[in-house]
Simulated assay, not measured.
Amino acid sequence: MTIVITAFERSPDGGKGLARDTRVRWALEEVGRPYETRLVSFAAMKEPAHLRLHPFGQIPTYEEGDLALFETGAIVLHLAQSHPGLLPDDADARARAIAWMFAALNTVEPPILDLVVAKFQEGDRPWAKERLPRVEDRIRHRLMQLAARLGDADWLDGAFSAGDLMMVSVLLRLRPSGILDEFPGLAAYVARGEARPAYQRAFAAQWAVNAAKPQAG
């Protein structure tokens, strides 16, 4: 059955790999599954046809036969559980890898997303200058904890897993802020993820969509 995912017709980041469809593309590349991409505009994301796939009007979505999924964590977990390559065979190691997926999405990503909101959606508010350093401090606290756990290891728990895929994807969103560079071990960890051939193919696929469209203005 053909796998179809949705992605932005025009990604807000210009195809730099920060849109969440990159995570799904990367997982599909890691497990060796071909897929098709249906591009949707911001207007189409709010229409009934897309809302039937994603009730919150976002991307990506995943369709395979009668199965339709939304939320990158759920999609990547489904792929990891259905195909070899993203989860260890050992049951305990498998459970730990899944725990790291949840940690990436539930513990590390929220303050990073809060930084995006603080800078770009609330930056003109009178209290923004006071709030921004607090948000950045919360991020640094999480990164200190993560860096301590990673130590000198290449990956979070032995071999590369879906937990690393999600964590690297989350940390990539920090690069424009410069905060990631304050943690050389984590910056190197992210670079290892980006160097994986599967990530390179996923990035190229998203970049091709956006590079083909002229910049506005």
Rank of each mutant, 00 (worst) to 15 (best):
D154I: 09
I75K: 08
L28I: 00
D114K: 09
W127L: 15
G158P: 00
V190W: 04
L165C: 03
F183G: 09
T37C: 15
P214T: 09
A204V: 05
D92A: 01
N106Y: 02
S177K: 12
R138I: 08
S177W: 03
D137T: 12
D114C: 11
P176T: 10
A68V: 14
F56C: 07
G32S: 04
V76W: 03
A7R: 03
T72L: 11
I139D: 02
G85F: 14
A191N: 15
G73M: 06
L28G: 02
R173E: 00
F56D: 04
E47D: 10
V31W: 14
H83L: 01
D137P: 01
V24N: 08
V4C: 14
I5F: 08
V24D: 09
Q215N: 05
V168L: 12
A211S: 15
V170C: 07
P184V: 03
L165Y: 10
A212C: 02
L87R: 03
A153C: 02
L77K: 12
R94Q: 04
I98H: 03
R38Q: 15
M144F: 07
A191Q: 01
T2H: 05
K119L: 13
R140T: 02
L18P: 11
F102M: 10
Y199H: 14
I98Q: 06
A95S: 09
A198W: 02
A187K: 11
F102Y: 14
A49T: 13
E122S: 10
L105P: 05
V190F: 08
Q200V: 15
H141A: 11
L69S: 11
P55A: 09
R52C: 08
T72R: 13
L113D: 01
D66A: 15
R149L: 15
A103D: 00
L150P: 02
A68Y: 06
M167K: 00
D137G: 10
P88H: 00
R192P: 13
L105C: 07
V24M: 08
H78V: 13
I75L: 14
P111C: 10
V209N: 02
A128W: 10
E63V: 12
Q121E: 13
A43F: 08
V24W: 04
E194L: 15
A216Q: 11
K129R: 15
R201Q: 03
A211R: 05
L180W: 10
K16D: 06
P48F: 10
V40T: 08
W207T: 08
L105W: 08
R20N: 08
D154T: 07
L113E: 06
P48E: 03
R142D: 09
V117G: 09
L150R: 01
A202W: 05
K213G: 12
R33I: 15
E136L: 12
F160L: 09
E47I: 09
L180F: 09
F102E: 07
A159R: 03
N210A: 10
L165A: 12
R94S: 11
L171C: 06
